[in-house]
Structures are given as structure tokens and as C-alpha cells.
């Protein structure tokens, strides 16, 4: 594969996979939590949370990227805190992962929330009458029953992260080997004379990865759904 791809192209693909992997991993627990809160709890500010979660979906990605920059930039307190704990994000691949996670978050929450809404709360009630504490109920009943939704949401988020462009380039720029992910690399190659060949190869890889992710998610969630299919 490295023979067919130039070193710069390969670098972009590998970086994108790394960024998307960590973005998905970061978003998953928070996504489950947000979906659970939105699906099961009534609390003041629920609508606000719902709006915040969905904001990256409807805002122009450039705006999201700019908001990330002023929140996590080197001058911002949150950015300085992350730098202090040894996890700087400004103009680093970690920042690209953060941007991708934020952009993928709404898709993930929606998928998980759909599956949560489909879980009958009466089953959770039954588990508590059998002596299971709320946290045990969540781990032994809710989580297995929403597994298809989590898998689907995770893969959807991964695919979205692979394609994230606007917020990433605004937040962490386009630094080769650090923040030049697959889409930014395609963009860059199209800007230089003679770069079309590289761009086309990356586009083909993009399509393959996206299709593979989609098929995988369909397959896994179908298998899981069959396992937990209603009584």
C-alpha cells in the first residue's frame, strides 16, 4: 500500500485513522452519558443540553473550529490547563482529535439515544425489584440492550471524524505530519500543480474507508440486535 501511496499521502491516511480512533474513543463515554441524560432524566436545562449537543451539526464547521480555538487555544484557560496536564491541543494532532470528536458527537448521541428510547424502562424496573442497584441495572440491562446503538453510533462517529475538515483546519491548521488529515491533504494537493494524482488516490481511500465503516456498522449492529431482540 505504501508503494502505491506516496509518503505524504500515507502519512495523512495514518494520521486520520489515529485522529478518528481517539476522537471516537473520547466521544463514546460522553455520548452514552449525554444520550442517557436526554432520554431518561428530566432536569432543568435539558433543552439547553440538547441544543448544545446538536450545535456542531448545524453550525458552520468554521464557526465550531473558531469556538474551539478561543476555548482551547494557547491563551485560553482551558487550553492552558490541558497543556499543564501534559496534553496540549493547539496545533497538535490531539486538537484534531478533539475537533473531530466535537463534530461527530451529535451523530453519535442521536444513534445511542434512538436505541435508548427503544429500551423498555419496565425491564430496568424489573431488574431493580430483583435487587440490582441503579448502576448494576445500567451495566447489566441497559448497556447490553443499547449495544447495537453504541456500535452504530461509534462507527458513524468514526466515519464523520475521518471526513472532518472545516473545524479541524480552523482549530489546528494544516501542518504536515501533525494536523494534515486525509481531507485537509486532499485539499492541499488540489492547491498545488500536479497534485491531482495524490488527491484522487486519497479520495479513493476515503470512499473505501467510509463504505467499509458503513457496512461494518450495519453488520455488527444487525448481529447485536438479533442477540437482544425483544421477547
Amino acid at each position: 500500500m505504501t508503494g502505491w501511496l506516496g509518503p505524504q499521502e500515507w502519512q495523512a491516511v495514518a494520521l486520520s485513522l489515529k485522529v478518528s480512533f481517539w476522537a471516537t474513543l473520547l466521544a463514546l463515554p460522553l455520548g452514552v452519558l449525554a444520550a442517557y441524560a436526554l432520554s431518561r432524566w428530566t432536569f432543568p436545562g435539558r433543552n439547553l443540553l440538547n441544543g448544545l449537543v446538536h450545535l456542531p451539526l448545524i453550525l458552520p464547521p468554521v464557526v465550531t473550529g473558531y469556538l474551539l480555538l478561543i476555548t482551547f487555544g494557547p491563551q485560553a484557560p482551558a487550553g492552558q490547563f490541558l497543556e499543564w496536564i501534559g496534553l496540549p491541543v493547539a496545533f497538535r494532532w490531539t486538537g484534531a482529535a478533539l475537533a473531530a470528536a466535537v463534530m461527530a458527537f451529535p451523530l453519535m448521541v442521536r444513534a445511542i439515544r434512538l436505541s435508548l428510547d427503544a429500551v423498555d424502562p419496565k425491564l430496568e424496573e424489573a431488574a431493580s425489584t430483583l435487587g440490582a442497584s441503579p448502576i448494576r441495572v445500567f451495566i447489566t440491562i441497559t448497556l447490553p440492550l443499547i449495544a447495537p446503538g453504541i456500535v452504530a453510533g461509534g462507527i458513524l462517529a468514526f466515519a464523520k471524524a475521518m471526513g472532518e475538515f472545516g473545524a479541524t483546519i480552523t482549530f489546528v491548521s494544516n501542518i504536515p505530519g501533525e494536523t494534515r488529515t486525509l481531507p485537509t491533504a486532499v485539499y492541499t494537493f488540489l492547491q498545488v500543480p500536479g497534485g491531482e494524482g495524490s488527491a484522487v488516490r486519497l479520495v479513493i481511500i476515503s470512499i473505501i474507508i467510509a463504505m467499509a465503516a458503513l457496512l461494518l456498522s450495519e453488520w455488527v449492529s444487525r448481529r447485536l440486535a438479533d442477540r437482544v431482540r425483544g421477547a
Binding site: K122, T129, L130, A132, P134, V137
Partner: peptide, 20 residues
């Protein structure tokens, strides 16, 4: 006392077996 500490079994109309 919360449900899970009441030690009261409940047989529901619809069984409510865990499908997984």
C-alpha cells in the same frame, strides 16, 4: 427504602424477562 433494597419480588403482568 429504594426499590432494590426492599427485598420484594414482583411478578409483572407481562413477565418482563430480559431478552438478552
Amino acid at each position: 427504602i429504594p426499590i432494590h433494597r426492599r427485598r420484594i419480588g414482583y411478578i409483572f403482568q407481562e413477565g418482563r424477562l430480559f431478552p438478552h
